[in-house]
Every structure is written in C-alpha cells, then in structure tokens.
Amino acid sequence: MQILLIRHGQSEADILNVHEGRADYPLTGLGREQAILMAKRVTEDYRPDVIYASTLCRASETASILSKASGAPLNFEDKLREHDNGVLAGVPFEEEKKYFIPKTMYERFEKGESAIEFRMRVESIFSKILTECCEQRIAIVAHGGVIHCLLRSFFKMGVHIEFSFPTGDTGIHLLEIKGAKRIIHFLNDTSHTAAIPSTVK
C-alpha cells in the first residue's frame, strides 16, 4: 500500500502570527491556491483511492479540494487534529510567555494534551487507517505536528528519539509498505507551489 501524507495550505493563523494547534483558522486565498495546485499534482501522479482528513477547517478544506479533484471518498477523523495546545491556541507569539509551555513530553498544555498523549493518539488512528485500507493508496491530509508523528510511527521510532520532519504548506510525502519493507519515495515535496507567481507568495 502507498501512503500520501499531505499538510494543509496556508491558514489565517500564519498571517496573524498566532499559535495555531487546536485554534480553528480557515485557509487564506493563497492557501486555497496551494491546495488546488497540490490536488492537481496528486490527482495526475498519485491519485488516491481514499482520503482521511483532520476535522479542523484548514485541513478539511484542503482535503475537500483534493477529494473534488480526484474523486476519492473523504473520511474525517477527529484524531487527526493537531496537537491540543489548550489555552495557547490562538495566542499571539509575543504573548506566549504568559502561558505554561511544556518542557517534557509528559507535561500537558493547560487544558490540552502532552506530547506523548499526542503521539499515542496519532499512532492509534494511523493503525486504524492502515488496517482499513490494506493494498490501497491512501491520502492523509492533516497538520505539521500530526505528520511528524505519523512519520515517526511509520519509521517505528521510539517516543524518546528526537528527529524533526518539517512539512511546508501543502507539502507531500509518499511512503509505501510492501510486505515487511517500509519505503520512502520522497518527503516534503512542495514543487507544485512553484506555479504560484512570486508576487502572490
């Protein structure tokens, strides 16, 4: 089976310079244009059989654009939401010092979740999706933090191993499970956004 991991397009939070996480900001005009170009690329080269997406609007809108372009059915999953950063959601970056920021994976954001709870949540939904979609090409449209956890899960990394997997707006990762092998075709491809005029970017 092949697995496409896709991050949502630019959201309003990126313009406002606020912590996103569970804050539910929509896509910007640029974000929608990024999503349209991503959907064209994926549909032409890696058309999915089924799409799973976070229910937060920046991801759900990106996934809906892909579903419309590709014709693939779309399933929304709450467990694909971004890390629950509790009271920090929507807070401007310059005001974050007023709030508790967890320093270990076991500490929770106030009214949120810890890093290890986040990882386990993502592990559980990833296992469910892989079980449901054996031998299909699936697309998972989510958030940077979720994709980071999904990649660590795919590589069977322990929770204490610190590797970073950044993903740009509408960045695409293509993975494959073939028997006992786990194959990386590419990571964080954003070449489709090169078609956006530099004046828009």
Rank of each mutant, 00 (worst) to 15 (best):
G171S: 00
E82P: 09
H185Q: 11
D84T: 04
V200Y: 09
N188E: 00
A23R: 13
R182N: 09
L174E: 04
D49I: 01
N75F: 14
L56Y: 05
R152D: 08
I184V: 15
D45C: 08
P102R: 11
I3P: 01
R47A: 07
S54V: 11
F118S: 01
R152G: 12
F154D: 02
Q34T: 09
I3A: 02
I101G: 02
Q10F: 03
F126Y: 15
H185N: 10
S153G: 10
I184Q: 12
F186E: 03
L150A: 00
S127A: 15
T170V: 10
L151E: 04
E82K: 05
K181F: 11
H185M: 13
F93Q: 06
A13D: 08
P92L: 10
C133P: 01
E12I: 13
E44W: 12
T193A: 10
R137E: 09
K40Y: 00
F100M: 05
D45Q: 14
E61H: 13
D24M: 13
H148D: 09
C149H: 12
S11W: 07
S54A: 09
R81Q: 07
I6E: 00
D49C: 06
N85D: 05
F118W: 06
R41Q: 10
P92F: 05
E95V: 07
V18R: 07
D78M: 10
Q10R: 10
T62H: 04
H192Y: 06
S11I: 12
M120W: 13
I125T: 13
I196K: 09
F76V: 02
S60L: 14
